[in-house]
């Protein structure tokens, strides 16, 4: 059973009065533990596909299946629960909550999932260790470098132990050294924790490390190489 599957996925939106076909007939099947890089030029539909796979957007037509459950027919609250427990997001712009410390940012999804405080603390420390930032636990995001913020964002994505990590250009805003650290971290999450990782990237060095590269052009898959 594929971990994640799309069937005849279309996404159309309107920009003023112009109809944009962002995704056209996307059929994908991703297995548990794959490290998938999605590449393509700007406007090719990479991020749109990631948003549909991550259940933060809905397709115009077609279906997305996660563990063989059709998520395209799910109600908003069920999708939110799915995002909370099964999916972890990493964004290009780090997106940590500026008023919470690194530790609290990581704890937030666990709190929402109803994890008791003691367990939250323990899990947070484990995740901080995993991303190598235990000593930065009580720092505010503004006191962290870009690379450190992104590592905290990755730790947050792992908070509720999701099976899939979705990353939208996670190294896009980082210098090459920080980018390498993030890449190594994603590889570690994939190899050691067995998480399925789907990364949208322009970064060739990151894409080369993936077990599979899907290329998009004008909303269509033009190559899918393992």
């Amino acid at each position: 059973m594929p971990h994640l599957r799309t069937v005849g996925l279309y996404k159309t939106y309107w920009l003023d009065e112009i109809k944009i076909q962002s995704l056209i007939d996307i059929n994908l099947s991703i297995e548990q533990g794959e490290f998938v890089a999605i590449k393509g030029p700007s406007g090719s539909g990479k991020s749109t596909l990631l948003h549909l796979l991550g259940c933060i957007d809905t397709p115009t037509m077609g279906n997305v299946f996660i563990k063989d459950i059709n998520v395209s027919t799910m109600k908003a609250n069920a999708l939110r629960e799915l995002r909370l427990r099964e999916l972890g997001f990493v964004f290009q712009h780090f997106y940590l909550l500026p008023v919470l410390t690194a530790q609290e940012n990581i704890e937030l999804p666990m709190k929402e999932a109803g994890l008791p405080k003691a367990q939250r603390k323990q899990r947070t420390m484990e995740l901080l260790d995993a991303v190598g930032l235990r000593e930065r636990a009580n720092h505010m995001p503004g006191q962290l470098s870009g690379g450190e913020q992104q590592r905290i964002a990755i730790a947050r994505a792992l908070a509720n132990n999701p099976s899939i990590i979705l990353a939208d250009e996670p190294t896009g805003e980082l210098d090459s050294a920080s980018g390498r650290t993030i890449l190594e971290l994603l590889l570690k999450i994939n190899r050691e924790y067995g998480k399925t990782i789907i990364v949208v990237t322009h970064d060739d060095s990151l894409a080369r490390q993936a077990t599979r590269i899907i290329k998009l052009h004008d909303g269509r898959i033009v190559s899918d190489v393992r």
């Binding site: 933060i56 995002r83 909370l84 972890g88 997001f89 999804p109 929402e112 509720n160």
Partner: peptide, 16 residues
């Protein structure tokens, strides 16, 4: 609204 959108994306409920 960016912060709220992020929270919604990572599964924080409307109620929270």
């Amino acid at each position: 609204q960016h912060e709220f959108a992020l929270m919604m994306a990572i599964g924080i409920s409307q109620r929270s």
